[in-house]
Simulated scan of single mutants.
Amino acid sequence: MKALIQRVSSASVKVDEYCIGAIEHGILAYIGLGHEDNLQSAQRMVDKILTYRIFENNSDPAKVGKLDQNVQQIGGGLLLVSQFTLMANTNNGRRPDFSGAMHPNAAQALFAELITYAKNQHPNVASGEFGADMQVESINDGPLNFLLEVKE
Results as ranks from 00 to 15, higher is better:
F55G: 01
N105P: 09
M45T: 00
I27T: 08
D16F: 04
S82Q: 11
P123E: 14
L86E: 04
D97F: 00
Q73T: 03
T90I: 11
V46A: 09
A109N: 14
E152F: 12
V150T: 07
H25K: 15
Q69C: 10
K66M: 07
V136Q: 06
D68A: 00
G131F: 11
E24N: 15
K66W: 01
L144H: 00
R94K: 13
L4N: 05
H25D: 12
M87V: 08
D68W: 00
H35T: 13
Q83A: 08
S127F: 04
S12W: 06
G76R: 01
L147N: 15
D37V: 05
Q72R: 13
A132R: 11
A22N: 10
E36C: 14
I31P: 12
L110C: 09
R95K: 13
D60A: 03
N140L: 08
A11W: 10
P61H: 02
L114N: 04
G142Q: 01
A42R: 11
N105Q: 15
K151P: 01
L144F: 02
A107N: 12
P123D: 13
L67Q: 06
K119I: 02
K14G: 04
L4E: 04
S12A: 14
D133I: 05
F130D: 11
F111Q: 06
S59T: 11
F111Y: 13
Y18H: 14
Q121N: 00
L50Y: 03
Y30S: 07
K151L: 15
L147M: 15
A107M: 08
S82C: 09
G76K: 04
S9L: 07
D141E: 12
A101V: 06
A29H: 04
Q43L: 02
Q83M: 03
L4A: 11
A126L: 06
H103M: 12
I74R: 01
Q6M: 11
